[in-house]
Amino acid sequence: MFDKHADSLFILMRTIYTMSKKGRVMKKMFNKIKHSMWGGIWFLKPPDDVSLDGYRIDHVIHYTDTVITIFFGIVVLALLYFIIRYRDRPNHKAVYDRGDKKKYIVITVILGFLVFLSIDAVIETMSFKDLKEAFWNFPKDEDVVRVEVMPQQYAWNIRYAGADGKFATDDDIVSPQNQMHIPVNTPVVVQMAPYDVIHSFYIPNFRIKQDATPGMITTFWFQAVKEGEYEIACAELCGNGHYRMRGILTVESKEKFQGWLNELALEAQDTGEWDDWLSDDSGSDVGIPQGWGWPWNKEM
């Protein structure tokens, strides 16, 4: 009895193996699910994705939507069917079945494999691939914009390296508080260290979120593919003003961005002050703390 079932299990496993080895059917199916921009199960839509790699996150979410719908659908349908079919009524008796026969054990094992192969393995593969290719694969080329971000209670401080390309030097350009400008179609690498408590840099349009923890520098990168103004939010509770920790991320053409930087540099030269530049435009009541800016950590 058991051998027979074990055989069928073996055949199933072998089929899956050969299918995935030959790759055609599986890959086709897989890609169809992965790239079907099926809106998923959520009737509210996330903000427009304007980043190079945000689609990867959307795809993982959509794949998870699909498997969730299938598995949960089976559970709900079975639940409804059993509720109607097996309700207690006259002349209806329950069948005594402890569910410990070998065939049930085989079904349990198959379900385990099915869950592992269709959910765990696929999501993991997708996620690992995305992390390796995008999120943890920092751009190596020279044409990147480097930004240092120091969140504080309750504002975003942003600085650029300036003309010499080095941070923590006299020509660093400090952007007006809560305003971050980046060029379009250029990788942006951000290093972040907070002034006081834990904050989290969250730009929903880019599907990016990264904690800033005191005492350490965290790094992440992203790339915009569309010009416009987007919002930066703090996603980690940081105090009473957590809700109003709002920054504006302006994505503009490379020329415009360079112009903006130059303007800031000139302005700072006029006043002769580099670091205690206080913002009037941002409407923020928070002063910029003194003496921030750290040498760029190249190892990260």
Partner: peptide, 30 residues
């Protein structure tokens, strides 16, 4: 951590199999 966390889905799914199995061919009293 991701690998280990996702492993939890396997025993969890077996709970559902067993819960539905309990109701299957039963005489449900609501």
């Amino acid at each position: 951590f991701m690998f280990l966390t996702l492993l939890i889905s396997i025993p969890s799914s077996i709970f559902f199999l067993n819960w539905l199995g309990t109701m299957w061919r039963g005489a449900l009293r609501f």
